[in-house]
Simulated scan of single mutants.
Amino acid sequence: MNTTMKKAFVVLTTVSCLMGGASIAAAEQVEIMPISAPITAVPISAPIEAVPISAPVYEIGHSNLLPSVRVYGQAAKIEEKRILLENNNENDALSSVIVNISEDTRILNAVTGMPMKLEDIRENETLYAYVGPAMTRSLPPMAHAELILAGIPADFAVPTFAEIERVTRGEDGSVVIGTNRDAEFAVTADTTLSPYLTMNIITPEMLVPGQKVLVWESAAIDGEQAANVADKVMVFPYGYKGYVSANLDGISVNGDKVELSEGEAPFAKDGQLMLPLRKVAEALGYEIKWNAETRNIEVVSGEDVLYSLKLRGTEVTTADGETRELRAAAALEGGNTFLAADDLIDLNEIKYVEQ
């Protein structure tokens, strides 16, 4: 080893020893800090509560049906089967709409409620129309008219066409009808009740959910409006075979509670509320029969079979021989056949009423 390499080796060795000594010295100076207090467990301030399982979820489609839409304006153009209504309200999404007229459309005088003809409507006359919620995407949109009010005097309070959703009857005989127009009307002893185009006598007891009415509110009293008090109510022919309310707690048909045994209680399945077929049908005045030949359950009114279905079937056959697919397959529970509420409502042509 030459002299230069020896000197380098000595220097490196010396530096290493010095660094090692410094490290040891530093290590010897490290103090272990004592724990000042014992570690204690953190107590749970309150017991953990079990989260309750929510009730089964279901939806009744008939509770979401949209009512007819009220439109108004001047009859800008009158044709054989349609009227173009226009108004000057810039904030009205339907300031211009084509109203289609069919044989089912009622055209009534807004003051008397008596029928009118299309030929009686004058051009530029102000009209109020109640049209179906389904409209075309054309400009202007087109919709079918269920009812048109014409012959409207200036500053006249146009009556409201609505369907009754609920009826509240007081012990004093008072009646308040709630409608699908988000409006309630009090029917008093002074309210005139009249049928549409018949001589039938109408009583407050005949005002039930599903009934379509035309309501004139009372005139001003001492300069003030008697809000939501019906002066006159015109009652149209009933369009349903009855009405039903139902949830997991029970069923009522035409306002009467249906008595159910333990095996007949409603239940939710696959998003549907299932109801006992026999109990609902019998509450409506029908019979349930078993056809041994076809192995069908039949719902019968008198001698007529209204509809029939297989046990646990997914289809139903109506009186005219038409086959429909059910929203949910018929269920057999505890010896009882259950159908989805929406299927029972359609098949029996009844009105669903929220409880």
Rank of each mutant, 00 (worst) to 15 (best):
210 G>P: 01
271 G>I: 06
27 A>V: 15
122 R>N: 14
202 I>C: 07
53 I>V: 10
190 D>W: 04
266 P>C: 08
4 T>C: 07
142 M>A: 12
151 G>L: 03
271 G>F: 05
212 K>S: 11
71 V>Q: 01
253 V>I: 05
207 L>K: 00
327 R>L: 15
81 K>T: 15
144 H>G: 10
197 L>F: 11
14 T>E: 00
257 K>I: 14
100 N>M: 10
31 E>S: 11
338 F>L: 07
199 M>T: 15
47 P>A: 09
259 E>W: 13
19 M>P: 00
160 T>E: 07
52 P>V: 00
249 D>A: 08
112 T>H: 10
332 L>R: 11
2 N>C: 12
52 P>D: 00
116 M>S: 12
1 M>I: 10
299 V>P: 07
28 E>H: 14
149 L>A: 02
142 M>T: 09
133 P>F: 09
240 Y>S: 02
301 S>I: 07
224 E>N: 14
17 C>D: 04
87 N>T: 02
26 A>D: 03
21 G>T: 03
217 E>H: 06
88 N>Q: 14
209 P>Q: 05
225 Q>N: 13
71 V>N: 01
340 A>K: 00
244 V>D: 03
64 N>H: 13
297 I>G: 05
140 P>S: 12
351 K>R: 14
168 T>H: 15
294 T>A: 10
69 V>K: 05
110 A>Y: 01
231 D>A: 13
56 P>R: 08
